[in-house]
Design a protein around this nucleic acid. Structure first.
Lengths: 210, 210
DNA sequence: GAGGAACTGTCAATTTATTGACAGAAAAAA
DNA sequence: TTTTTTCTGTCAATAAATTGACAGTTCCTC
């Protein structure tokens, strides 16, 4: 899809650009220069221009960037113009919290199933979707064309579940389990290691950064 | 505390080293070389040695690293040898999920209060701690010596709450609200922008990164 | 206890990321 | 219209991060 491989550092900044542009759009602002945006976002104007230029020339000399257009384009680059079906594996507190987070839907991430291995909660309704036994996971993925699996399960089961997900054709895993998944390179994995993040905060607190 | 500023790239890798070392320790393994660790962790041995060396020579030529010792030392560097009291602002689904996550306690992060602005849930018990009105937040922080505030509130209220937190002396914020907080440089902020993470996954899915 | 193998710590080389500079295009002003 | 200003896209320079190389220490074997 892309000609040259674009670094994850750049990709990681796109959602933030998207967020600020959405905000400017909501404020009714139609154009913005890299300099203005850099002031708001506290990054260099050079970085903004460089980043955006990886994907093509969205701006115009002497004018800047059209907020609405750039917002749309970054949305497309991020794949937000398409719907992604996602299922959640693990209906514990975190799984349920994510299932209830409606903002994902606004960006095209459609929550369509949640699975657990505890019979006591089978059938529990979360936003009109009932908790299913994890045994039904494979069939559900195949028959519902699921793109993304969200892993909110204990680390002990994560590897086994990941393997099952891969073998039934899932393409992406959003992993909240506190282990690194060892799956094929073709499967996209995005880790959210909350404890790691908290430890980083703890370090910075202890070392009184800046 | 530290002589030279250590880059956030290095800090960000420490929790992962810590995790793998903990695992080796649990398996009863006493020593490990940077080469062995690099094989397991899929990073270069050079990077491991370089990273660890920022904090001092933990290894021994011809022997490698003592797993238990290195584990302890990284724990100290991350500040995990001390207890950190944390409170959660926002008792929605995510706030409650985090409040219920007992693994934080194992690393010294003590959940000791949760606040909300919805009177309907005041008094609700979460792990023996009741949801308090957010008005009591400031007094609670001051009288309980709270280190970290976890923000699980809508982005609209985040800035105002952050300001209140800062003015009553909080030193660190773990921010789950989908905005960048504009607080003094002395306050450590660690953002967990779930939607950004999901968008990154979406991009990689769309561009089929290897 | 001597010799070879296994390692680290560190320095240098390389790669990657970020920032600065500027030519030239468009817009705004005169 | 002409001139001046604004602002991008891009290239070059700088800075930062990662990797490679190796001297020298320790361990292990014989």
């Amino acid at each position: 899809m892309e000609e040259k491989e674009i670094s994850q550092a750049v990709i990681g900044r796109l959602p933030r650009y998207f967020r600020y542009l959405g905000q400017l759009k909501d404020e009714g602002i139609e154009r913005v220069s890299s300099q203005e945006l850099s002031d708001i976002m506290k990054v260099t104007a050079s970085q903004i221009r460089q980043d955006l230029n990886h994907f093509g020339g969205f701006g115009q000399q002497g004018y800047g960037y059209n907020v609405g257009y750039l917002y749309e384009e970054i949305g497309k680059i991020l794949g937000l113009d398409k719907e992604h079906k996602l299922i959640i594996i693990g209906a514990g507190h975190l799984g349920q919290a994510l299932a209830n987070y409606v903002n994902f839907e606004r960006r095209g991430f459609i929550f369509c199933g949640i699975f657990d291995n505890d019979p006591a909660i089978y059938g529990t309704q979360i936003r009109d979707i009932e908790v299913r036994p994890v045994e039904e996971m494979e069939d559900f993925i195949k028959s519902n064309n699921v793109d993304i699996a969200v892993l909110t399960i204990p680390k002990q089961c994560a590897a086994a579940i990941a393997e099952r997900l891969v073998s039934c054709g899932i393409r992406a895993i959003w992993n909240f389990a506190h282990v690194d998944l060892n799956v094929s390179e073709e499967i996209q994995v995005e880790n959210v290691h909350l404890l790691d993040s908290l430890m980083k905060l703890s370090y910075n607190l202890a070392s009184r950064r800046k």
